[in-house]
Design a binder for these strands. Structure first.
Lengths: 174, 174
DNA sequence: AAAATTACGTCAATGATGTTGACATATTTC
DNA sequence: GAAATATGTCAACATCATTGACGTAATTTT
């Protein structure tokens, strides 16, 4: 008897939002639960690869963003991840000791530690991204690629707005 | 200088998948990152409400599924959450002691502990669901409600398939 | 040039959530 | 009666997060 998640979510019909409804409409349990299960499986597969290196989800996030923005500073990474210096320090130390990440002093500001992936780090990052990419690609194919912009828009709308309309160029991919 | 996440994700253009590309297409970093940020904010807001009760995300998941499926057994809940008995026991104890959840012995099988929310528990569950519902509703409105089925389909496709095609009726909402 | 600020590293302590494995108890099933 | 099942509980541990304090080097301000 395996989990009934999928069925549980799938079984629940979308509450047809009645515009005249005086009582608050039922919560959209279907999408709430789909988000939960989708995200869990979306990160679960990478988790299993990371385990082989003794890493966790936190390491994944770090190498992902260093991969995306080579030369990222520690402060920028803290801003992106919204965690504390301590939390980052631990996983960063693991990644540096394991030769997945290297640091270089900033050219202009030599206090800064610019972060880069080593070849080894890039290989791991690419492997993890490939897993998530494939999963996404399958899902996009299922709904038809022409609907991909809608997905992006929907997800973007879920994100808190007050954040990061800031320096759009600061981290632009070179 | 706040986080550059949103912009970082938004800035990256979707790699136009070239069908003839011999080299593997670039990972879909945009959707990968949007999923990360969207999920973080999606659960972040409830987290702040839960904090006031001294609860965490694990408590949220438990009361959510008990709310959805009153009379759920412990074993069923374990199947849904895919955590261990110990992990569940801790949060369940908190919720029972705090009078958010109550247990009743099963009528047919008296070994089972059927789980129900108290009025207090239902109030909290509803409050949490309302937050997530509003966020989703805003996002659905932004893309046009006619595209909601596409979102549901996309998310469902992200979920591991091998699971839970099983007893679709077992947990059907009464 | 001295003072203040910034970027980063690190230490200690703590909390929430997850894990494994073992064992006890009540109940149902064979 | 024996075996299997549903649940509870104990001990020990791992990961990822937190706060607060302090130190050092480099840059900026005065």
């Amino acid at each position: 008897m395996k989990s009934t998640l999928l069925s549980a979510a799938a079984v629940a019909p979308a509450p047809p939002a009645d515009p005249r409804a005086p009582t608050p409409a039922l919560p959209d349990f279907e999408l709430i639960e789909l988000l939960f299960f989708a995200y869990r499986d979306f990160v679960g597969e990478p988790d299993r690869l990371l385990e082989r290196h003794g890493f966790g989800r936190a390491h994944h996030r770090v190498i992902h963003f260093i991969n995306r923005h080579p030369g990222l500073t520690v402060a920028e990474l803290l801003d992106i991840l919204e965690i504390t210096k301590q939390s980052l320090a631990r996983v960063l130390k693991d990644l540096i000791h394991g030769d997945f990440v290297e640091q270089k002093a900033g050219a202009e500001d030599r206090r800064q530690r610019l972060l880069f992936l080593t070849d080894k780090g890039r290989a791991l990052a690419d492997g993890l991204a490939a897993m998530q990419h494939q999963r996404i690609t399958r899902a996009v194919a299922a709904i038809g690629p022409e609907h991909r912009p809608m997905i992006a828009r929907f997800l973007a709308e879920l994100i808190d707005k007050e954040r990061g309309a800031a320096p759009a160029t600061a981290l632009s991919t070179p």
